[in-house]
């Protein structure tokens, strides 16, 4: 019974993080320039990672930890690759 507030606060936090992902997605689709899109993709990754952590708390399962770690790694690698591409893509032009 006393745990109802915990369940609700985790659910609300997940909604807030989902809303944050929508904001990042909005900027990703509409961002005026390419660097805006890369920046919001990075923000999207971070929020998705936090969302996974809250899922882990909600279910009490530990395998979400590995998934979180992988998302962090992939987010870093992809953002670096895209930022590199922004520079090199123009050098060739």
């Amino acid at each position: 019974m006393s745990m109802a507030f915990l369940g609700w606060s985790i659910t609300i936090a997940q909604m807030l993080l989902g809303l944050a992902m929508l904001c990042a997605l909005w900027r990703l689709l509409g961002g005026p320039r390419a660097q805006d899109r890369v920046l919001s993709l990075d923000a999207l990754y971070v929020n998705a990672m936090l969302l996974l952590v809250t899922f882990g708390i909600q279910t009490g399962r530990t395998f979400y930890y590995e998934a979180t770690l992988i998302i962090a790694l992939l987010g870093f690698a992809s953002t670096v690759a895209l930022a590199k591409f922004l520079m090199r893509g123009e050098v060739i032009e």
């Binding site: 936090a13 807030l16 944050a20 992902m21 900027r27 936090l50 809250t54």
Partner: peptide, 17 residues
């Protein structure tokens, strides 16, 4: 902590807009 962290993160992403 979960609510606080999610709110701070949302504020940051709203700043993106």
């Amino acid at each position: 902590l979960v609510l606080f962290g999610a709110s701070v993160s949302l504020i940051g992403t709203v700043g993106l807009l």
